[in-house]
């Protein structure tokens, strides 16, 4: 990889991907919990999630708990692979110097 994956490299999206990658495969993270972890506003987080979903790196599921809407996000296989490639790219740079 000559260049970092631009979709993942953006700071907020990097936090999102790191938070999801740390969990067992298939684990869903609630939007509110992700928002607290990342420290982003609701609108900002929503926009970055949309970018990641368009790229196929994450999948989201919307439902209701009682009357409250709930959004849960999970890392896709493609997202997991892309993130691992991104981390390998960083390690190569650190290791090469």
């Amino acid at each position: 990889m000559e260049q970092p994956d631009a979709v993942i490299h953006q700071p907020v999206r990097l936090k999102i991907m790191s938070a999801l990658k740390a969990l067992p495969a298939g684990t869903q993270l609630e939007f509110v919990r992700l928002k607290a972890l990342v420290g982003a506003t609701e609108g900002n987080l929503g926009a970055h999630l949309q970018t990641l979903e368009t790229q196929g790196y994450i999948a989201s599921e919307k439902d209701f708990v009682g009357k409250k809407p709930r959004t849960r996000i999970t890392l896709t296989k493609e997202g997991r692979r892309a993130f691992e490639a991104y981390v390998d790219y960083l390690r190569d740079i650190v290791g090469n110097i």
Binding site: P11, S18, A22, L23, T27, L29, L37, V87, L90
Partner: peptide
């Protein structure tokens, strides 16, 4: 810096989960 950020966020997420 990016690797440190990834490790820090991963640890926070894992603990919170």
């Amino acid at each position: 810096l990016a690797l440190n950020d990834i490790a820090r966020m991963g640890r926070r997420s894992f603990n919170a989960h």
